[in-house]
Design a binder for these strands. Structure first.
Lengths: 146, 146
DNA sequence: GCAGATTCGTTGGCTGCGCCAACAATGTAG
DNA sequence: CTACATTGTTGGCGCAGCCAACGAATCTGC
């Protein structure tokens, strides 16, 4: 079949973004099977790990825009996975908390994601997986500061 | 500041997609400075490397949907970077060819992209860059077949 | 105490990229 | 000739990442 030009396949930025497409598709398909999407997982994971928080704090923790947090919380609240209550100490804030159903959904998504990692790293040996993770982590933390 | 949950930062799929966001932003910003975007580069690169081709063939070579190729060729033709002529041998096809201006634009984008790679891989030593590229290439080719 | 800056939730909108379905025109194989 | 496949095109969708603006509430400097 038709080949992709070498100028593309040689560039790390190309490899990264294209592979990210595959990763995203794997995750997206998996999430779809439990009626969710990526943003849902981020919010639920943060709530489970750090407890209830304001929407702005959630956004900062999972690298999301405030406006996208609003929409996501709307969807999660509709499904009863999350509760939004006004914060009495600071009436600008909404306290967002995880419900029992939300916790169950998080566990479902966690299982989905575990499988995604396996599919994604498919042909890589354990050592290579570790190397890759190390390098990616290094780069990501670097770009998060600058 | 607020931290990102470990469940996220530990997952290769997260690292990959988030780092891809940074890569995409670097490329996007650079392309923006020369009045272009990612799809433009793909098409121009394929034309330069393999010569004129039909829109469908272009799409297969750079992993783009036929409909997106149409829009991209429209934009490129508008700017005079590409020419669209009916193929006399197969009247379904359009022959798309690179113009001199298109070639110059490609070179501009090439320079932009070289800088992007450097910014992207920033803190990595030459050896680590090679390792990363190798692993990513391996995974990408794997996911392109399955 | 008060004026000015900052934070928070919310609305509405935009871009890029990856897709899909449908259609007419053309080509190919049986 | 008939079926099937390919090509260009239109129009539309979803996800993710953004930005600007607004009123309400809070915090800060004076």
């Amino acid at each position: 079949m038709e080949e992709t030009p070498a100028r593309l396949t040689a560039k790390p930025s190309w490899l990264l973004t294209q592979l990210a497409v595959h990763a995203h598709r794997l995750a997206s398909d998996g999430f779809g099977e439990v009626g969710a999407r990526g943003y849902h997982y981020r919010i639920l994971a943060v709530l489970d790990e750090f407890g209830g928080a304001s929407q702005a704090a959630l956004g900062r923790r999972c690298n999301m825009d405030r406006s996208d947090v609003v929409a996501t919380i709307n969807e999660l609240a509709e499904r009863g996975l999350v509760e939004r209550t006004p914060d009495p100490d600071d009436r600008r804030r909404n306290m967002v908390t995880l419900t029992a159903a939300g916790d169950r959904q998080l566990h479902r998504m966690e299982r989905v994601l575990d499988k995604v990692q396996d599919d994604l790293l498919g042909p890589l040996a354990a050592e290579d997986r570790q190397t890759l993770t190390r390098l990616l982590t290094l780069l990501l933390t670097h770009h998060q500061r600058g």
